[in-house]
Simulated scan of single mutants.
Amino acid sequence: MKCQLFYLIVILAFITACSNKEADSIMNQEIIIKGGYFFGECFGTCQATVEIIGTTVKYTGKDNSKNNAEKQCSAKVSARVISDLEAAIDFDEFGKLPMVIGCPDCADGGAQWIEIVKSGESHKVVFDYNRPPDAIKELANFFSAQFTNFKNCR
């Protein structure tokens, strides 16, 4: 009986260690995902950025008023959310996208952008506001949800 209890403890310790290593590897990856939008002519928050580093989501918004006030807020999300987000990104396809798609902020239609920094290399794609290319539609939707989540940031 003591032997079985010992093996059970060893197995549980091994499973826990593996789970922690998996979480650590997610946290230690050198991936930074950023997204944002900007409008040249507007009132209120005319540009905003959401940056994801590890499990922290940081929002920065800036308005075009005379005082050019900047708002910053942050929140934590689970490693699982970040893992699912990264799994949804086809890094090769993203890297093949042109740096500018369409005519961002032409006729004050606004522009959106997504940037991924992975292993020290960066690629940024700017596109018409709310019109992401299919390859990054899911990622753009994630950022749109974050902009909504942080709309009351002061």
Rank of each mutant, 00 (worst) to 15 (best):
A107D: 15
Q47N: 14
G109A: 09
N68W: 07
G36N: 04
S119Y: 10
E93D: 15
A111F: 02
N20C: 14
G102N: 04
A88P: 01
G109L: 11
I32T: 09
P98E: 12
P133L: 03
R80E: 15
G35Q: 02
P98T: 11
Q29R: 15
Q112F: 07
V117H: 05
N68G: 08
G35A: 03
S19I: 14
V126T: 15
E93A: 15
D84H: 14
N67I: 15
C42R: 07
A23L: 14
K21G: 08
S65Q: 08
C18I: 15
D105T: 07
R80W: 12
I116T: 02
E93M: 13
E115H: 03
F14Q: 01
S19Y: 10
V126Y: 02
I116N: 01
I52C: 00
Q47I: 07
Y59G: 02
L85F: 09
D63I: 00
K118T: 02
E93F: 09
G102A: 09
E70F: 05
K118G: 01
I89C: 05
T56P: 04
T60H: 00
K124T: 12
E22C: 11
V125P: 03
G61L: 00
S119H: 11
W113G: 00
D128F: 08
K118M: 07
S122Q: 14
P98F: 10
T56I: 12
G36L: 05
C73L: 01
T60V: 09
Q72M: 12
K137F: 12
N28L: 09
V50T: 06
R131Q: 14
E51Y: 00
S78R: 04
P104R: 05
A111K: 08
Y129F: 15
G110A: 02
G110V: 04
N28P: 04
R80N: 13
F94S: 02
D84Y: 13
K76I: 05
F91I: 10
T60N: 04
R80M: 12
A75E: 10
D84M: 13
D134K: 14
I116S: 00
A13C: 11
N67C: 13
A135P: 05
S65P: 03
I89Y: 04
K62F: 01
C73R: 04
S119C: 04
V50Q: 02
K66W: 13
F127Q: 05
S78Q: 07
F94Q: 06
E41H: 12
L12G: 12
I114F: 08
Q72G: 00
K71E: 07
W113S: 08
